[in-house]
């Protein structure tokens, strides 16, 4: 069985993203970058399937600059067998749909039975790439999995909803996005870290996947970012000074919110 896990290197998520005012892209230079923590859940899900089904091949695929290799290596250290990095200057500025198209082409080469993605990346948060990948591969998409089981050539998930969950299934091959509640990702074993560099990583360009420079990157983008704005600051709370009635005022406030 072949499982492909899509991963992305993102700026250290505990920091604040800075935007390049010219290109309107997230600044990635001079910032500490890590494997998107959201991707660790999909890698863990793949490794758990691998442990239960010996012989399963887990491939981590990423599109990004050369240094995204570090993110792939983290996946290899956790236990994935192989990495694929699509890296090409022509790909810079690709929109979500182009990214999905390129990733789908890279994934197809691996002949996957299951493709796992995070629901969205922790930097740009478009959440469109997994759907795009499923579209280009012509595969069903099961989203927001908080539980995933494989049986009889099918994948069944518990799909997280606001109210609870739905149980849905699809015939393999399929694309599944997983949420952060699906598992607890492992730390890479020390041996895994030492072996990660020895594991194979295919490095591909857009041309290797059959795309011309016009089809990808900024030129191929159908979507254009018009601007960025900082998130609205949370309004300051009300400060109640105790003049002897503070407890009543707080109780009234809470009662008004219907929390007491």
């Amino acid at each position: 069985m072949n499982i492909v896990v899509c991963v992305k290197q993102v700026p250290e998520p505990t920091g604040t993203n800075r935007i390049d005012p010219k290109s309107l892209r997230i600044l990635r230079e001079g910032v500490d970058s890590v494997l998107d923590p959201a991707d660790e859940f999909s890698i863990e899900a793949a490794l758990q399937i691998q442990e239960a089904n010996p012989g399963t091949n887990v491939v981590v695929v990423s599109m990004g600059p050369d240094r995204a290799l570090e993110a792939i290596r983290r996946g290899l250290a956790m236990g994935a067998n192989k990495g694929v990095l699509v890296s090409d200057a022509n790909l810079a500025g690709s929109d979500a749909l182009t990214t999905a198209k390129v990733l789908a082409a890279a994934i197809k080469r691996e002949n996957p039975d299951l493709v796992l993605c995070a629901t969205e990346s922790s930097d740009a948060y478009t959440g469109m790439v997994p759907g795009g990948i499923a579209h280009h591969l012509g595969l069903p998409l099961l989203s927001y999995a908080k539980k995933l089981t494989l049986a009889g050539g099918k994948v069944q998930i518990e799909r997280q909803t606001e109210a609870g969950f739905q149980r849905v299934e699809a015939q393999l091959p399929a694309v599944v996005t997983v949420t952060g509640s699906i598992n607890t990702p492992r730390y890479p074993a020390l041996k895994g870290i030492m072996q990660a560099k020895k594991k194979p990583v295919d490095q591909l360009t857009a041309a290797d996947l059959g795309f011309s420079p016009e089809q990808v990157g900024e030129k191929g983008a159908k979507e254009k970012v018009l601007g960025w704005a900082p998130a609205e600051q949370r309004k300051a709370g009300t400060v109640i000074k105790d003049d002897g009635t503070a407890a009543t005022q707080i109780a009234d406030f809470l009662a008004q919110l219907k929390v007491i």
């Binding site: 290596r73 730390y187 020390l190 870290i193 990660a196 560099k197």
Partner: peptide, 11 residues
């Protein structure tokens, strides 16, 4: 060596 830098980071 690169492996030991990765090891250090991870630890």
């Amino acid at each position: 060596p690169e492996e030991l830098i990765d090891l250090k980071k991870s630890i």
